[in-house]
């Protein structure tokens, strides 16, 4: 154990190394470590926020889906109602038309029959007049007795 001038040399070396470490080694390394810690903390916070956002979005999506479903059900209901309404209206209209057509047919038939009746009556009258003419050929003037014939025709 002999203390000698080596001590001073080592002291100088020690001071130099500590100074160098303090100036050029410690600050950048510590800075990098702290920056990374901050980055990691920020990242964790961001991921947490993202998770929350995702949860919120999912809830929103579910709600919207539910709303859409309700709306769709409403629309379908309405459409069904409208459909049955249209069918009803159409059926009614068709009935009406049928009634109309039948009524028209009846009227036409009636008119035809009336016309035929008229014709027949006229022919019968003519026939009756002709028969009476034959019977009363010589004694009765057709013109003189026309009022009687006419009365007969009206009675038919």
């Amino acid at each position: 154990m002999n203390i000698n001038a080596t001590l001073f040399g080592e002291l100088l070396a020690f001071i130099f190394f500590v100074w160098f470490c303090m100036k050029f080694v410690w600050p950048p390394i510590m800075g990098a470590i702290e920056e990374r810690q901050k980055k990691i903390a920020d990242g964790l916070a961001a991921s947490e926020r993202g998770e929350k956002d995702l949860e919120l979005a999912q809830a929103k999506a579910t709600e919207q889906l539910k709303e859409a479903k309700t709306q769709a059900a409403g629309i379908i209901e309405q459409a069904k109602k409208r459909g049955s309404q249209i069918v009803d209206e159409e059926t009614q209209r068709a009935h009406q038309e049928r009634e109309n057509i039948i009524a028209q047919g009846h009227a036409e038939i009636e008119a035809e029959r009336n016309r035929a009746k008229e014709d027949l009556r006229k022919q019968v009258a003519a026939l009756a007049v002709a028969g009476a003419e034959r019977i009363l050929e010589r004694q009765i003037d057709a013109a003189a007795q026309s009022d009687i014939v006419e009365k007969l025709v009206a009675e038919l």
């Binding site: 080592e10 160098f20 050029f24 600050p27």
Partner: peptide, 25 residues
């Protein structure tokens, strides 16, 4: 003693300095 301690001290500061220079987050 002087030589070995200085060499080892240099090993320390130079190897750590290499990291400090390129240190990134």
């Amino acid at each position: 003693t002087l030589a070995w301690s200085v060499v080892l001290g240099l090993v320390f500061i130079l190897s750590f300095r290499a990291v400090a220079k390129k240190a990134s987050a």
